[in-house]
Design a protein around this nucleic acid. Structure first.
Lengths: 159, 159
DNA sequence: TCAAATTCATTCGTATGCAAATGATATCAA
DNA sequence: TTGATATCATTTGCATACGAATGAATTTGA
């Protein structure tokens, strides 16, 4: 119909352009950085879940960062692990429900909600960190050591 | 207390290890591939939203793939754009509610739900693809052309 | 000092993302 | 042929993820 004719015209135009220069006018979703980034992230999450079944990557990130810096406000923690206020609240709520973190009010600044590891939370994160090293290793396994180093350097520039 | 003593012991042990070899026993969340991958993905989604406000990356992916391959089953589409059945259903439902895709039953195999672009959906994706090229460009902007090529090659190996 | 702007946290709404269970249909194999 | 498997789609439940609106508390600046 009308559209078929237009389509045929497109075909011709594309071929003429290609004859002049080897440019590709098609759009290939599979080659877009966003699409591959999403898939790489998916794969990492799957590897993570295979090694650490009882915690999600964001939950692990929260515990690991608390272990690193000690007590902080919920908001500050969110900044440190790249989560907005609404997201970090959900993560902390679930960690609190499981007894891995405890909350308290800031004495001076009454707006702030302080978050800290419980003894159980500390035990958990210290037990899991060695597994996390394995997760990083397995995620990067398709690359050689040199490639992995290059990739990490470039990825850091993008993030 | 008891823990403080253990902590002090840990300190000593770590320092001895470091004296022997320059190994780092600390765990740095910020250097883990999963964490940076999540941040890079976040940044990409933000760039996408700044260029294409009325569609999410998964919605765009569905339309772009339909434009590429034509009518397919919902399940097959999910495979092509790396989404599981439950996720793709939600995406297609919302695109259908906006009149960008239409659904029909497979004549032979009654299990399958066929998905196709509407005229409006085709117009939309053809209008948006040029913007998507800009999104890819901006996402990779922190890298030189050579670095970007290297990054894409390594990222593809990971995903 | 005190009104304006900022910060911290919460809530709501919407959109992925995936595991698991279920039902309908189709295919395979004994 | 039919019973076991496999495939396609849906539904439910849970967990990010973020924009926007709101309220409480703090800080800033004229």
């Amino acid at each position: 119909m009308g559209w078929a004719a237009v389509s045929a015209g497109e075909e011709v135009r594309l071929k003429l352009v290609e004859a002049e220069e080897p440019e590709d006018n098609d759009y290939h979703l599979q080659e877009q950085v966003g699409f591959i980034l999403r898939k790489a992230h998916q794969r990492h999450v799957a590897i993570f879940a295979a090694h650490i079944a009882d915690l999600t990557p964001p939950q692990f990130a929260a515990l690991a960062k608390l272990h690193d810096v000690g007590e902080t406000s919920q908001n500050q923690l969110g900044t440190l692990i790249a989560m907005d206020a609404a997201t970090v609240k959900g993560v902390i709520d679930r960690l609190k429900a499981r007894g891995l973190v405890e909350l308290s009010k800031h004495e001076v600044d009454k707006r702030r909600l302080l978050v800290n590891l419980t003894a159980e939370g500390r035990d958990a994160i210290e037990r899991l960190i060695p597994l996390a090293r394995g997760i990083t290793e397995e995620t990067l396994a398709p690359l050689s050591a040199k490639e992995a180093a290059t990739f990490m350097r470039l990825l850091a520039k993008l993030a």
